[in-house]
């Protein structure tokens, strides 16, 4: 096989050239019925009631949110359900100007990680949710939203369906 690399200092094909070529288009028919399992089923049922449930390991005291039926550190079943607060601290927040397919968004979508109470700022692992945050782009850009206390804004009861989207976003209180 000949190797033509030397000639190719730029990209072998420009986007325009590529667009002119025939492409194989195929949308995979890949639908899944994911099993929620015991822990996430209870978690989703909790969201429907406006509650956030976690699972606690009594041996090491770690609280899992989203819940897990076993403790990964002690490698034994977790012991009890506990309800954590729908309030917490913004650990990190970002403003996305692109969609999941990398299309440009006009107004940014703001998401981040919320460390839920009870927990302390000395913890390296903690109960937490990844979710949207209702705040301005400026508050993300100057980092002022990070470290703030936020609370979940729930959808109205009749609109909740047992999904992570039953929470609209987390907002500063």
């Amino acid at each position: 096989m000949e190797i033509h690399e030397e000639k190719r200092l730029e990209h072998p094909l420009s986007k325009e050239e590529l667009d002119k070529r025939p492409k194989i288009e195929y949308k995979p028919y890949a639908k899944y019925s994911y099993s929620a399992g015991q822990a996430i089923t209870k978690f989703l049922e909790g969201l429907k009631e406006g509650k956030i449930y976690g699972r606690k390991c009594r041996k090491c005291g770690r609280v899992y949110v989203p819940p897990r039926m076993y403790c990964e550190d002690c490698f034994r079943p977790t012991d009890e359900w506990i309800e954590v607060k729908d309030e917490g601290i913004v650990m990190t927040a970002v403003a996305s100007f692109i969609s999941w397919t990398r299309e440009r968004l006009e107004s940014p979508e703001i998401v981040g990680v919320i460390r839920l109470f009870p927990s302390s700022d000395r913890d390296f692992v903690y109960p937490a949710l990844f979710h949207r945050i209702c705040c301005s782009y400026e508050e993300v850009k100057d980092m002022s939203i990070m470290g703030r206390k936020v609370k979940a804004i729930w959808k109205s009861k009749e609109k909740r369906e047992g999904s992570i989207n039953d929470i609209d976003c987390f907002k500063v209180i």
Binding site: I40, S96, I98, S99, W100, L129, F130, R132, I164
Partner: peptide
């Protein structure tokens, strides 16, 4: 279940 519904990239 807990992350994909938020349409993350």
């Amino acid at each position: 279940i807990t992350e994909k519904p938020l349409n993350p990239n």
